[in-house]
Design a protein around this nucleic acid. Structure first.
Length: 277
DNA sequence: ATAGTCACCTGAGCGC
DNA sequence: TGCGCTCAGGTGACTA
């Protein structure tokens, strides 16, 4: 699924096309996502005031509260401006109507598709930060608080692999399996080294490479491996810029050495044995 | 507190 | 073609 760049790409599409529109209908065909989807009727008739993001959660703000959407591993949101019959994995439609009198466009359908159903929809009245899903999240990776010193402090005395630390969302949010491998490559750090062995300089490099990787991926519209599309249906193009993820046995783009794959906990990591010494 | 495992669910790709 | 196996972008719950 979507990691932070894919969620951010989705957020921008939603904000651009649906902000100011009024939610006129909710159609939940399959409520059994990661958690049972229960959306209140009271949302109907409310205007979408804005779309923000916290970690990988999309926050659709209405006057009475927020719709909190997570895309899980295989979820995507598309905006349809013409009727399309719902497919097998098209679980939820939110229908928005354009109400500005001078531009009487038709309805827009925000369609949630998710083959694996690991995603989620929640409604939180009032302050969104009080939702239990958002309570224990760490810092945003693109924010100033995510600094070399911050990461270094969190790495101290931890026995887990550095890649696991980077993917620990109580420390820093939004970094999943693709971008963790990519950021570690760019910082020349092997994914399996203990977090406690991270040096101050290494932490500095890793924070910089993480921000760079995420920012470049956002500019490319994210990474599409199989399912992900932006809200206009287009894939992300960052896959072409991946150095190591999914490139086992292929030559490192910098030195030509064969890219290796190793298990880090329950996930696969990819690295160049020469560049990441 | 931390680290590791399991669970949720479907589909793609591979070897036989 | 089909079967069985492994793997897949996430993350909360549970165990030791």
């Amino acid at each position: 699924m979507p990691e932070l760049p894919e969620v951010e790409t989705t957020r921008r599409g939603l904000a651009q096309h649906l902000s100011g529109c009024v939610l006129s209908k909710i159609d939940v065909r399959q409520p059994n996502l990661r958690w049972l989807v229960v959306l209140p009727e009271s949302l109907l008739g409310q205007r979408l005031l804005g779309v923000t993001r916290r970690a990988k959660y999309l926050l659709l703000r209405f006057a009475s509260g927020n719709l909190i959407i997570h895309l899980g591993m295989s979820g995507s949101l598309r905006i349809l401006t013409a009727y399309h019959p719902a497919g097998k994995h098209d679980h939820i439609d939110l229908i928005f109507s354009e109400t500005r009198s001078n531009s009487p466009r038709g309805n827009s359908i925000l369609r949630y598709t998710d083959p694996r159903r690991f995603g989620s929809f929640h409604y939180q009245p009032g302050a969104v930060s009080e939702h239990w899903l958002l309570q224990k999240l760490g810092v945003e990776p693109l924010a100033q608080e995510f600094s070399g010193l911050y990461l270094y402090h969190h790495a101290q005395r931890r026995k887990t692999a550095i890649k696991n630390l980077l993917m620990n969302h109580q420390v820093v949010v939004g970094i999943g399996n693709i971008y963790a491998s990519e950021a570690l490559f760019r910082a020349a750090i092997r994914p399996n080294v203990r977090a406690s062995r991270l040096t101050r300089a290494g932490a500095e490099r890793l924070v910089i490479s993480t921000k760079e990787t995420l920012e470049e991926a956002i500019l490319s519209g994210g990474t599409t491996l199989q399912d992900f599309t932006a809200t206009d249906g287009r894939p992300g193009y960052f896959r072409q810029q991946l150095y190591v993820y999914g490139r086992t046995g292929k030559p490192c783009r910098l030195c030509g050495t064969s890219v290796k794959r190793v298990a880090t906990g329950q996930r696969m990591s990819f690295y160049c044995p020469k560049c990441q010494s």
